[in-house]
Structure formats: C-alpha cells, structure tokens
C-alpha cells in the first residue's frame, strides 16, 4: 500500500505537477495477480493479462517493462514514441505467446508534446477492456471505449450499458496486446493545460463498483490513505472476484507567461464555450 507521490517538472514552456497513487491486489478469488501497472510521469498504464498457466502475468509484466524502457522520464514523451512502444510491447508479448496463449489489455495515458516541443497534450490509448476515466471533481467520465463483445452490442443498440454488466460475454475482448501483429490502439488527445484528473483501472474495479460508488471514493480526502488504495479496498469489500488495479493521477500544467498565448481570463481555454456569432 503506497501513499500519493508528488512530482514537479519545470519545462521550458510550462510547470507541470503530478499527484499519483497506484494500487493492485489479486482479489479474494484469484490465486495470481495478472495485472501490471506503471505510474511514473509521463506514463501511466494498467495492463490486465490473460492466458494459461503463468502466461497472463508475464504478458502484462512484459508490456509494462517494454513501455517503461522505451519512454523517457522527467519530460513529456511524443505520440509517435508511445505508439512505437505499444507496438514493441505487442511484439514482445507475441514472442511469449509462441509457446502458449498469452495476451494482455493495455490502457493508459501519457503526457506528450508535439515535434515543435512548445505545448503538451494528454494522450489516452486503449487496447482491450481496461479503462481510462477523467474525473472533474464531481463526476466520472469514461474516456476510453472498450474493445469488447458487449461494447459492440451496446454500440449496436442491442443491449444497454446496464445489461452489458451482467451479459455472459462480458469478459470477451476483441482486441489485445500480443495477439495480432497489426494491432492498433485507439487514441484520444486533449490539451493538457489546466488541471486534469484521471482514473486508470482494470475491469476488477469497474465490475465491482459502479461509477457513483467510484465517485464517492474519489471525493474523499486522500491525505490519510491514497485514492488508489481506497478504491482497491472498496472493490475487495464488494467481492474482489478479479484482480483489481487502480492508478489515479491528478496533474496541473501551468504555461509559462512568456509562452502562454491564451487570452486573459481564469478559465482554461478548453473549458470556455463558443458563442454563436450574431
């Protein structure tokens, strides 16, 4: 069990702070924890391994290892670099699965900058059914979209999100690391300026706790016990049927005055609404 770790970066164009907590537990039923995570700026991921014997945990561990080794610390990465690291993790897990089926989900966020290196974005990426949520202090918003059989049924309008939670195919995913060499993650980008909070988790959390229950925990004061620890404890208290892994990140990017080109006003630009021209 860890506490919340703080990081501060002074970039040429911005000051960036991170408050990070992470926790993982094999749950009350499983014998092995097949989840892995990374939670050091600029990269935060959760990987939920699957496979026979010990191959599931090897798949998720290998994925975390490859991503960790290919990304820089102490400064933003680039979207290109993250994607290359994901592709390499895919190849590394394929090498494992030459002997026995092994695969893993991979979801996460990375702070990335463009080639000009004068601004940064949050990049969310996903393969499988682990999830990235954003948290605005009051409600939870799911950023990633699962690659799962039930998500496809939901997209088709054939079942509701509530029905998906109990559907017999709820554990069938349609995309994973280590299965197909042509695998592509889905990607989201959003400007990093201002304060953003993210929750990254394996399905062991979301299958035990609904969004309002997660929100209740995120609203609590994290000074005693970190949000990640509290969420894992809550998932175990609700049954803990699966491995459960949680990474919680709160980050603030403050552009330096010299490079800031935003208009005056207290709201970050992306929170303002556009008014129709008369």
């Amino acid at each position: 069990m860890g506490s919340t770790l703080e990081y501060v970066w002074e970039l040429p164009y911005a000051r960036v702070t991170f408050a990070v907590s992470a926790a993982s537990d094999k749950g009350l039923i499983r014998r092995v924890n097949e989840d892995s995570y990374l939670a050091v700026p600029p990269l935060f991921i959760v990987a939920d391994g699957m496979g026979g014997h010990a191959f599931g945990d090897r798949a998720s561990q290998e994925t975390a290892r490859v991503l960790d080794s290919l990304l820089p610390g102490e400064r933003p990465s680039t979207a290109c670099r993250v994607l290359e690291a994901v592709a390499r993790a895919n190849a590394a897990v394929q090498a494992i699965s030459a002997d026995e089926f092994a695969g893993t989900t991979l979801t996460g966020i990375a702070l990335v900058q463009d080639s000009a290196g004068d601004s940064c974005n949050w990049m969310a990426f996903n393969v499988g059914d682990s999830r990235v949520y954003s948290w605005d202090g009051s409600s939870l918003h799911q950023v990633s979209v699962d690659h799962s059989a039930v998500q496809e049924l939901v997209d088709e309008g054939l079942i509701t999100a509530a029905e998906a939670a109990d559907h017999p195919d709820r554990n069938v995913i349609t995309r994973a690391i280590g299965i197909d060499g042509d695998m592509q993650p889905d990607v989201w980008l959003l400007p990093a300026e201002g304060t953003h909070s993210f929750l990254i988790c394996s399905d062991g959390l979301t299958k035990e706790l609904d969004d309002p229950s997660i929100a209740v925990v995120l609203r609590t004061d994290a000074s005693g016990q970190s949000h990640a620890d509290r969420l894992v404890a809550a998932a175990l208290a609700s049954g803990g049927a699966d491995n459960v892994t949680v990474v919680v990140v709160e980050s603030t990017v403050t552009l330096s005055k010299s490079s800031s080109n935003t208009q005056s006003g207290s709201l970050p630009a992306h929170l303002e609404v556009t008014h129709p021209r008369s």
Binding site: A79, C80, L83, V86, D114, S119, N121, M123, F125, V145, Q184, P185, D186, V187, W188, L189, L190, P191, E193, N261, T262, Q263, P268, A269, H270, E272, T274, H275, R277
Partner: peptide, 27 residues
C-alpha cells in the same frame, strides 16, 4: 481554439493545432 481528438486509430494520430482569435469565437 483548444482541439481534442477522440478515438482515432493509432495509425492516424492527428496533430492538434490551436489558434487563438480575438473573440475566442472559433470552436
């Protein structure tokens, strides 16, 4: 003004280009 990209394939990740205008009048 402060663009985002939503669920794009990894092979087609866009670059976000923000433009600041006098009245903050573009989306």
């Amino acid at each position: 003004r402060a663009p985002t990209a939503s669920r794009v394939p990894g092979s087609q990740v866009p670059r976000l280009v923000s433009m600041n205008t006098p009245n903050q009048d573009i989306s």
